[in-house]
Write a protein that binds this DNA or RNA. Sequence first.
DNA 1: CTCGCCATCTTGACAGTGTCAATTTAATCG
DNA 2: CGATTAAATTGACACTGTCAAGATGGCGAG
Lengths: 214, 214
Amino acid sequence: MSTASYHHGNLRQALVDEAVAVTRESGPDAIKIRDLARRVGVSHNAAYGHFANRDDLMAAVADHAYQRLVDAMHRRVAAVDTVDPVLRARRRLAQIGRAYVEFAVAEPGLFRAAFTAPSRGDTLASAAGPYALLGSALDELVDVGFLSPAARPGAEVTCWSAVHGFSDLNIDGPLASASPDVRAATLDHVLVSIDRSYAATTGSTVSDSDILES
Amino acid sequence: MSTASYHHGNLRQALVDEAVAVTRESGPDAIKIRDLARRVGVSHNAAYGHFANRDDLMAAVADHAYQRLVDAMHRRVAAVDTVDPVLRARRRLAQIGRAYVEFAVAEPGLFRAAFTAPSRGDTLASAAGPYALLGSALDELVDVGFLSPAARPGAEVTCWSAVHGFSDLNIDGPLASASPDVRAATLDHVLVSIDRSYAATTGSTVSDSDILES
DNA sequence: CTCGCCATCTTGACAGTGTCAATTTAATCG
DNA sequence: CGATTAAATTGACACTGTCAAGATGGCGAG
């Protein structure tokens, strides 16, 4: 549309697509500018017309990955149709966590790309990002009286840390070789644990593991 | 000692030392075999007499980093001299977590080296590793009746995920630009949250944040 | 004391890589 | 139809990891 050129219809997009494919296959470190150019059928460093350098291209891949992650989270949150307000809020939080880990395990390359990318601290906390999504889920928990307002500040970080750490340990950490069954069971455990730690802030009596449904 | 050679007293160790220095300064990706050789005053690929390849050298750095981490954890656990058994066990767990994050933030390069290293899943769960240390701290929590035996399985992972994720987010994630004060406060929040989630398993009544002392 | 062994280190080469500078190409507009 | 101009190419440079041979020198056997 805007920039179509002679040899290649839309080189920039083609490069990003190929980079995403490589990243999904072998992780972000496997991205090589020359290799990308070769795959797209263009000569080496044609990419430099569209990206300042390798890191710039990686940032584009990171954006893509990031969007995929946010989409997955939204999808899972939207699938929660529980009527009871408290249970619904708790289940939504759990689904956010589940979507996060699910994405990390299903797309380790993209997940890594999203968080390994250099110098993009601002995009992460943007209004559309997972930080905001997580934030409103936690607000909802406060509104329905499950989470104490006093415990609200910093709750994003606690929550995010748990799922992010679990993801990392499952990707190339010591849990990478765990079986899917074990992994799933442990994830449930993590999600319940988060729920429980918030329940304790208002002394809510809780029937544990029914938050795992949607 | 074992392998001393003519030109260089102990090349292997010198290379590892230099690699550790580079890693502390600029992270594991900054390790270049040729550069290391140059620094040590030896010609390029002299290193190949002592290491199969770059990854092999990185693994040595990872071992070093790993040992440092375990030492830091041991130190902090040993510093807990509380007499009350329950409080002592809870504080020990908190100190383990604190040591972990402290190390990650103070030595991000080494921390990354320890977990980014290729193909070393077994060393991590070894008897002397942090996994074992964490495990015995959790056993202690069960023994004193703070953590329900039913909630014991998988507790390592939940706990480890929280501190590992927090570390990662603080190193190059969205929390990397947080001030030390904010970081410290948030860490306290994470540690209390872990404690709280375990307290809930036995319905223990808990005075929250005095577990943060040693 | 000397000679040969052998681990250790060096020299040289090759295939890749990111990136810069100068050049060519072709699509578009006056 | 010719000039402008963005887009892509060619060529070069400084790096990197790694392999294959050659040089070196300490150490033990004779």
